[in-house]
């Protein structure tokens, strides 16, 4: 499993627009992805799961990726998260 810590950097957090972009990105990846924050587990392939997690700017999360090419996909996902804009 690929596992890394990350911080939500988007100034407005994962509100509807960046959450939509993240979901659209993750749905194309042929792996299982989980975003962890404390007791909360979010499946970023589900916009409902992602919005229900309520991740604001500064939220520290753990990104888990499981599947083929998980390391490469995981690094790409971290980059995508870091570049999410308003």
């Amino acid at each position: 499993m690929f596992e890394r810590r990350a911080v939500i950097q988007n100034p407005s957090g994962l509100h509807a627009r960046p959450a939509s972009q993240l979901t659209a990105y993750c749905k194309k990846l042929p792996v299982k992805i989980t975003l962890l924050h404390g007791e909360t587990k979010a499946d970023p392939k589900s916009i409902i799961s992602l919005l229900a997690a309520g991740m604001k700017r500064g939220t520290e999360i753990t990104v888990q990726v499981e599947g083929e090419n998980e390391d490469e996909i995981g690094e790409g996902l971290l980059l995508f998260l870091a570049q999410l804009a308003e």
């Binding site: 407005s12 957090g13 509100h15 509807a16 959450a19 409902i48 919005l51 229900a52 309520g54 700017r57």
Partner: peptide
């Protein structure tokens, strides 16, 4: 407030 939007969306989903 952007933080309020994230909170509201979380509430709506709930």
């Amino acid at each position: 407030d952007p933080d309020a939007q994230v909170d509201l969306l979380r509430k709506v989903m709930g």
